[in-house]
Design a protein around this nucleic acid. Structure first.
Length: 760
DNA sequence: ATTCCAGGTAAGGGTAATTCTAGCTT
DNA sequence: TAAGCTAGAATTACCCTTACCTGGAA
């Protein structure tokens, strides 16, 4: 148990596990509990789902009850296996920027499986010690290491970037500053005092790493792209003139200093390009062995000074030398064997067996050991990268899901070579190539539900993972896939689906633009009571959005009737009805429509194009259309009636070309008959593989169309047996609605959300 | 004068994405 | 033989850490 006391005499945020606690722009507190730390207290053999409740209590009776009269809590198990989870608390009163440090005493305790476990903790103090310390020297680091501190290194995860962006947003908002670049590039050190320290909060990285990251993110001379031949020429001249004064050279070229520095590293006048000659290879090998004091045949993958090697080789740059050695020469010299399809499957299995929650946790050195066809750990990692990219949306699914999907995919191919052959469309099915399994998508949707617990913690239920083939070689409409999932469950209050988007008001009441990371906006229409409007807020992350649609009576008391919040890795769209949120069975419905449709949506305003997310955050788009009704609403088909109370529709689109946007219109009745009959042509291709792994179901759905149409998979997308929520199952048994109320996708031109509403 | 703080610079190891190309099939 | 295709090689823009530096404040 640890107590985190901020620099305040009044506030204590106390946790009983090691959690990262952040606060978004709306004052929502986001806690993240890493798996390894949770494991300290969770029995290893526990098979209980990691449902945890967040318990708020106050040492000061005034604190929560008075100042934050309504707090909704969302507990999100990140996967069915790990014990990590995220908790989001939404206080309906505005929480000021500094309230965490200046407010009242709040105790946060994490309860698991309805038992209050006293959980030992590494605590936030340690996190703070790292992220609040500006240390770059070896002594500083040794000192912290000796005190038992650990911090994250390597590539920043999306989650970290989300936290950072959220912190920056909050900092800007609190100070009324519009553009972070004002602070970063224009203010003096004194003026921006504490900026970096503030935005580093919740990040387990050295302050210096945060600083570098922020500079890169906001430097518009970064991410400029490929150097033109003219730029290269100019760069050469500037290099002669200014030497290693990268800042000056960069300024002259309109590039960042590190960019021009990196580019210069690649261009040596003496460098050859293209295929290595035997002489060059021989020289490289000799130099590497000489500089590392190794013998020919020894495996050398680390501890090589490539700059020194390149210097000695003479005709190649350090990058070229490293790449050649690690990806070919060392393996060839030490008698490596060819990489096979079996190796590929083995790699997936081995990675799965590692049971790591994050790809960054994979020890590639260890994985590459004693594997003759692996050229180097670095090469193996790049191999994994190519395997991973067989999944078109690999960036949008969690790592465990990705692994499961790949495993299932390969097993399916192994058991059904015909599928491989058909999908590849060529005679290369027996080769070790990956071509046959490219253009696969994994779809994950998760449902959540309010329970009777106050103040409304969520328990999760899940929609199966779906993998759909969308081979672009098979069809000009290849990137178009579609399916519609309709759930008709009275208890559903929360819908969660990948990937993500961003809400922006359009100026038209009740209509919002939904913006994806790639700056494409689409309208969001709230088909609900006129008194319910959406308030879009800056998301804490582009990955996850929570929409809280509070009841009309609550709306009278607050301007924030809907809260949008994001955090990785999934999108959540949630309505919270203030009345009877404990109702176990109501008639709420939820429609998920990931259909791809041609866009006759209005162009997004220019304002939406600008800088909503950093360049490096890109998400594909998909259509998401959850609709939530509370107990006042009995049927989805009634949604256009005035009975609708809380109904939210959200849609966005896949990034598809104009030609991809030509999809045949299907009426609901067409669809209903279609998926019952017309696709039953090929026994092989009709095969739907469904495997339940833990609580998650993965479907592999080959399609005769080369892509998934609504008619292909609807029946499989949501088999009744895959819903794991007991309440929902109970409801299903009662009504048997889910299977019978599958909603069709709507017309190709997305007449708009009204059509979707009325499609029943 | 010294130490600390809050950056700042350069070097270099690395990753991930794209482009090129040799070799294969049609 | 040419065209098309693909896997693997090569390239490169960008990322991250490390080590050392700087100028002002304490």
């Amino acid at each position: 148990m640890s107590t985190v006391e901020e620099d305040s005499d009044t506030v204590t945020v106390e946790t009983v596990n090691s959690v990262t606690l952040t606060q978004d722009t709306e004052g929502n507190l986001i806690l993240h509990c890493p798996q390894n730390e949770a494991d300290e207290v969770d029995s290893e053999d526990s098979t209980e789902p990691p449902h945890k409740r967040l318990c708020l209590s106050s040492e000061d009776d005034q604190s929560i009850d008075d100042s934050t009269p309504c707090i909704s809590v969302v507990a999100l198990p990140l996967s069915e296996n790990d014990q990590s989870f995220e908790v989001t608390m939404t206080a309906t009163t505005e929480v000021a920027d500094d309230e965490i440090t200046e407010g009242t005493v709040t105790q946060i305790q994490i309860l698991q499986n309805e038992q209050l476990d006293e959980i030992s903790s590494l605590g936030n103090e340690e996190v703070s010690a790292v992220s609040q310390a500006w240390f770059t020297t070896k002594e500083d680091k040794d000192s912290l290491t000796n005190k038992g501190h650990k911090w994250k290194q390597g590539m920043w995860s999306k989650e970290e970037i989300d936290i950072l962006m959220s912190n920056i947003e909050r900092y800007l908002k609190a100070r009324g500053i519009k553009d972070a670049t004002e602070i970063i590039f224009e203010m003096s050190k004194d003026e921006r005092k504490d900026f970096y320290r503030t935005i580093a909060w919740g990040l387990n990285r050295p302050l210096f790493a945060v600083y570098r990251r922020v500079l890169r993110m906001y430097d518009d001379r970064n991410h400029v792209g490929k150097y033109t031949p003219e730029e290269i020429e100019k760069l050469k001249e500037l290099r002669i003139k200014h030497g290693n004064d990268w800042a000056t050279i960069g300024a002259a070229l309109g590039r960042s200093a590190s960019s021009v520095k990196d580019r210069c590293r690649l261009m040596k006048d003496t460098c050859n390009t293209g295929k290595w000659t035997e002489e060059e290879e021989k020289r490289l090998a000799e130099v590497v062995h000489e500089l590392t004091s190794t013998e020919p045949g020894d495996t050398v993958t680390q501890g090589v000074s490539w700059a020194a090697v390149a210097e000695r080789v003479g005709t190649r740059s350090e990058k070229q030398c490293r790449s050649k050695w690690l990806n070919y020469l060392n393996w060839k010299q030490s008698g490596g064997t060819e990489w096979t399809k079996e190796d590929e499957i083995s790699l997936i299995v081995r990675i799965a067996e590692l049971d790591v929650a994050d790809e960054n946790d994979i020890n590639w050195d260890l994985l590459a050991e004693g594997w003759s066809s692996v050229r180097s750990p670095q090469w193996l990692r790049s191999k994994w990268w190519t395997i991973k990219r067989q999944i078109a949306n690999h960036k949008d699914v969690s790592f465990p899901v990705l692994i499961k999907g790949l495993k299932q995919l390969h097993e399916n191919q192994k058991n059904n070579p015909a599928l491989v052959e058909n999908k590849s469309g060529s005679g290369v099915a027996n080769s070790s190539s990956n071509s046959s399994v490219q253009h696969v998508q994994i779809r994950v949707a998760r449902l959540e539900e309010n329970t009777a617990l106050s103040p409304s913690p969520m328990t999760a239920l899940q929609i199966p993972v779906q993998i759909t083939h969308v081979s672009s070689t098979d069809s000009p409409a290849a990137t178009v896939d579609s399916e519609t999932i309709t759930l008709n469950s009275g208890t559903l209050q929360t819908f969660e689906i990948l990937p993500s988007f961003h809400l922006q008001p359009t100026g038209t009441p009740g209509t919002y633009l939904l913006q994806t990371g790639s700056s494409q906006g689409l309208p969001l229409t709230l088909t609900a009571s006129p008194t319910v409007t959406l308030t879009a807020t800056a998301p804490a992350s582009p990955e996850q959005i929570i929409v809280h649609a509070l009841s009309p009576e609550h709306l009278l008391n607050t301007s924030d009737n809907v809260t949008v919040q994001c955090h990785t890795p999934r999108v959540i769209i949630q309505t919270v009805a203030t009345e009877d949120i404990t109702s176990s069975i109501s008639q709420a419905e939820l429609t998920v429509d990931s259909d791809i449709q041609s866009a006759d949506f209005p162009e997004p305003p220019d304002a939406l194009e600008a800088d909503t997310f950093p360049d490096e955050i890109h998400q594909p788009k998909m259509t998401v259309e959850p609709s939530f009704n509370d107990a006042h609403v009995s049927k989805f088909s009634d949604r256009n009636s005035t009975e609708l109370m809380n109904s939210v529709m959200v849609r966005t689109e896949e990034g598809i070309s104009d030609t991809d946007l030509k999809q045949e219109e299907e009426s609901p009745s067409d669809l209903a008959s279609a998926y019952g009959t017309e696709d039953l042509e090929s026994p092989i291709e009709e095969q739907v593989d469904q495997t339940t792994i833990d609580d998650e179901t993965i479907l592999i759905v080959p399609s005769p169309h080369g892509f998934i149409q609504a008619s292909d998979v609807i029946d499989s997308v949501l088999p009744l047996t895959t819903l794991t929520d007991p309440i929902l199952q109970h409801h299903r048994e009662e009504s048997n609605i889910i299977g019978s109320s599958l909603c069709s996708p709507v017309s190709e031109d997305s007449k708009d959300v009204e059509d979707l509403v009325n499609c029943h």
